[in-house]
Amino acid sequence: MAEILGAEIDEEGFLLKMADWSEEIALAMAAEDDIELSPEHWEVINFLREYFIEYEFAPAVRILTKAIAKKLGNDKGNSRYLYSLFPYGPAKQGCRFAGLPKPTGCV
């Protein structure tokens, strides 16, 4: 089984146990994808984690964009902006950095 900073990950790079997550892991995952985490990235990651802890599920992309709009301003509350932060998708790449399971389905 592959690992990142000692935490087990699955074949797609997602943490097996959410409890293993740390900011260092998020940074290391981002580095693997050639992304330097900005404060805006952290807003997304933190919101994903907060939402997940409350609902045991990642927020719908629409809910995420609205939350980001509230925090970072309306011009950034859209999926184009989120894709500029997370080129592989705010839901998938964002969830990975946030230590959440990968949302899969017809999405």
């Binding site: 629409r62 839901a91 389905g105």
Partner: peptide, 8 residues
Amino acid sequence: PSADFFAE
């Protein structure tokens, strides 16, 4: 489909 609740 549950994607209707989640995805764009």
